[in-house]
């Protein structure tokens, strides 16, 4: 009888029979051993502006090589990338690209950093890890864009190779994570704390879905948690929801809701609060938390001016959280 394999990468702890794939569809038990099916097979590679991740405190205005393999260990009903995140490996035609080639592509296209993004980089863990290792050796920076649903031990192993991360805090209740994402909240909070404590440049994104996580007290609780556990210098992005996948019955988030969320976050004491997926000039700029002068002006994904000099406000010399060069 072939052994069952228990995958301990993420809090789902899938127990897999021979030939069976995990919830992420990426990992499979083949005769008592756990294999990853998507290693070296990215389904998407693009060059994006770093602002698209969104990262507003990390090398503004630079291009970032962004890649993903299929699969995800969460199943959010509103997934924007469900065609790749909720599909089977090899349903999409892919070619083998070794980690060395990924960093070579970044260098070739003059991208100072690489983003593991679009689906879930912590589920295609081994590929993320190898690419990060080789890229870091070549002087490139590594960025995770993730839902943060991973166990502590493997995450701690990856963190020293990571420079920046945008982690989703999709809601602030177990119920939201259970009903919308098919996951749990607690491990995500742990991942956020580990990331910040490791000195990785951390930005947090909260996608605001009408009727699901858009109440004042939802924002209040989330922001208070961020201030007390990650610090008031943590950039927070409220993003506009757009009807997709299994949530086409809900309307896009109104601008007023996003502005209200931003105001609550500022009142709670957060220093850098942005709204995204929607054009609103003031809420996409970075201002100095001390003297309020304009530091980075953005329009959409474009940087119109960047006045930060050596990581500091040019007027009052306040150090601004982020990686600026």
């Amino acid at each position: 009888m072939t052994a069952l394999v228990k995958c301990e990468l993420c809090p789902r702890y899938c127990i897999l029979d021979n030939g069976q794939k995990g919830e992420c569809r990426i990992r499979v038990n083949i005769e008592g051993k756990l294999y990853t099916l998507t290693y070296g097979h990215p389904c998407s590679i693009h060059i994006d502006p770093v602002e698209k991740k969104p990262l507003y405190h990390f090398l503004p205005g630079t291009p970032i090589l962004s890649l993903a393999t299929v699969g995800c260990n969460l199943h959010c009903k509103n997934c924007q990338n469900w065609e790749i995140s909720q599909t089977e490996p090899y349903q999409l035609e892919t070619e083998f690209i070794e980690p060395e080639k990924i960093s070579a592509l970044a260098i070739q296209y003059q991208c100072p950093s690489i983003a593991y993004t679009y689906t879930e980089p912590l589920a295609y863990y081994e590929y993320t890890y190898e690419c990060c290792k080789i890229s870091a050796e070549k002087g490139l920076k590594n960025v995770l864009v993730t839902a943060g649903y991973i166990n502590e031990e493997p995450y701690k192993r990856l963190l020293p190779l990571v420079h920046s991360a945008n982690i989703d805090l999709k809601g602030f209740s177990e119920e939201f994570y259970r009903t919308v994402c098919d996951g749990t909240l607690k491990p995500v909070l742990k991942t956020l704390e580990l990331t910040k404590n490791a000195g990785v440049e951390l930005e947090v994104t909260n996608l605001v879905i009408p009727t699901m996580n858009d109440k004042d007290e939802d924002f209040q609780k989330l922001c208070e948690w961020v201030v007390s556990n990650l610090g008031k210098d943590t950039p927070l992005h409220f993003s506009q929801f757009y009807p997709r996948y299994k949530m086409t019955h809900l309307p896009p988030t109104p601008l007023e809701t996003l502005l209200k969320a931003r105001q609550i976050a500022l009142n709670v004491g957060l220093q850098f609060v942005y709204i995204g997926n929607i054009i609103h000039r003031e809420s996409s700029n970075t201002y100095c938390p001390s003297c309020k002068s304009l530091l980075v002006e953005r329009y959409g994904f474009n940087v119109l001016q960047n006045n930060i000099s050596q990581g500091k406000c040019p007027k009052c010399n306040t150090e601004i959280y982020g990686i600026w060069q």
Partner: peptide, 24 residues
């Protein structure tokens, strides 16, 4: 019935080559 043994694994082995998989 004999209970199958349970192996715990955190890290997966890459299956980098599509052909290997199809062969399997």
């Amino acid at each position: 019935v004999k209970k199958p043994s349970l192996i715990r694994q955190t890290y997966a082995i890459p299956l980098p080559n599509k052909k290997v998989l199809i062969h399997f």
